[in-house]
């Protein structure tokens, strides 16, 4: 086969698989933001925390108990979901109706807190002044070498797994929201929380449920993140959070299926932009992330033209 055709096919495959992971990472925040209008800027830190749980699991439990590292995904789901419950009761509950800024600051404090915990659990603590750069960071990655090879194309096994998890979990979440009582109550709370209250819905329960569920899904995404990436403590802020926001807005806030498609769009944009020959930029000594430039540019254009995203109505519908 012609190399450019192979590259093209490979870009599609990589983009779709990567997009599945992005969707999985974003769907929880889309739920939380859609229901409560809370921009949880610690969502990236939740994912990275779960990634470190999985790494620790594979270092400790896998050799001694002979458990597959994938088993840690359940642990991630429970732990980060539990963290979500604690965060909801300690931080969010008192300020969820007091505008956009207070929850934003609270979750920002939380992300600094979690990043500290992750970093101090991992060797050298970096420079303490926020105005200076971050110091040495531990890098970990597990399980990444296995790949399936089909003719000239290859697929990394963990990427395939995270893609499969995304395309199973997200439709299930969609069905949960559209078919079950609690799912509908969550949607009702998102569309008009006051009307939900005087319809007899306990909105404190539905908000807790959506926050906990959204966090737990970040946990699953974090587990998969550890299989496919070198994880450093600050990746939540520097890499995941912006991508997640782009996916959520592209897909439409609160639309689960939209988030899945938004994930694919971003995954494909990133993988295709790698096809362009940017080697002329190497003469400057390093390669800028042209993919991110293109992705964020597409994001801003969509935000202008369709502020509610490609599929969304602004809340969990």
């Amino acid at each position: 086969m012609d190399t450019s055709l192979v590259n093209f096919a490979q870009a599609i495959i990589s983009g779709i698989l990567l997009g599945g992971f992005f969707a999985l990472a974003s769907v929880g925040l889309s739920l939380i933001f859609g229901v409560q209008r809370i921009l949880n800027v610690a969502h990236g830190a939740f994912i990275v925390l779960a990634a470190f749980v999985t790494i620790q699991f594979s270092l400790v439990a896998t050799p001694s108990l002979h458990l597959n590292p994938l088993a840690s995904l359940g642990l991630d789901f429970m732990l980060i979901g539990g963290l979500g419950v604690c965060v909801y009761f300690l931080l969010i509950r008192r300020i969820e109706n007091s505008g956009f800024e207070a929850p934003l600051l609270a979750t920002f404090g939380l992300s600094v807190f979690l990043e500290y915990i992750i970093q101090s659990g991992l060797g050298p603590i970096p420079s303490i002044d926020p105005s200076h750069g971050q110091g040495a960071q531990a890098e970990h990655q597990i399980y990444s070498s296995t790949s399936l090879i089909v003719g000239p194309l290859f697929v990394q096994e963990p990427e395939l797994i995270s893609f499969l998890i995304a395309i199973i979990i997200i439709p299930i979440l969609h069905l949960f929201l559209s078919r079950t009582y609690y799912g509908k109550a969550i949607r009702a709370t998102a569309q008009d929380w006051l009307a939900a209250e005087f319809s007899g819905i306990d909105i404190r329960k539905t908000r807790l449920l959506s926050f906990a569920l959204g966090s737990a899904l970040a946990g699953v995404a974090g587990g998969m993140f550890a299989f496919t990436n070198s994880v450093t403590p600050l990746l939540g802020d520097t890499y995941l959070l912006p991508i997640i926001l782009v996916v959520i807005i592209l897909g439409g806030v609160g639309s689960m299926i939209g988030t899945l498609i938004g994930g694919f769009v971003v995954g494909l944009l990133l993988s295709f932009s790698e096809l362009f020959d940017s080697s002329y930029l190497f003469r400057f000594g390093f390669q800028p992330d042209v993919g991110y430039l293109i992705t964020f540019l597409v994001f801003l254009i969509v935000l202008m033209v369709r502020p509610n995203g490609l599929f969304g109505k602004g809340v969990v519908k």
Binding site: I249, Y292, F296, L300
Partner: peptide, 15 residues
């Protein structure tokens, strides 16, 4: 949405 849009801007400026 303005807030989210502006949050992404620095990541775009970097490249």
């Amino acid at each position: 949405y303005f807030a989210i849009g502006t949050l992404v801007v620095p990541f775009m400026l970097k490249p």
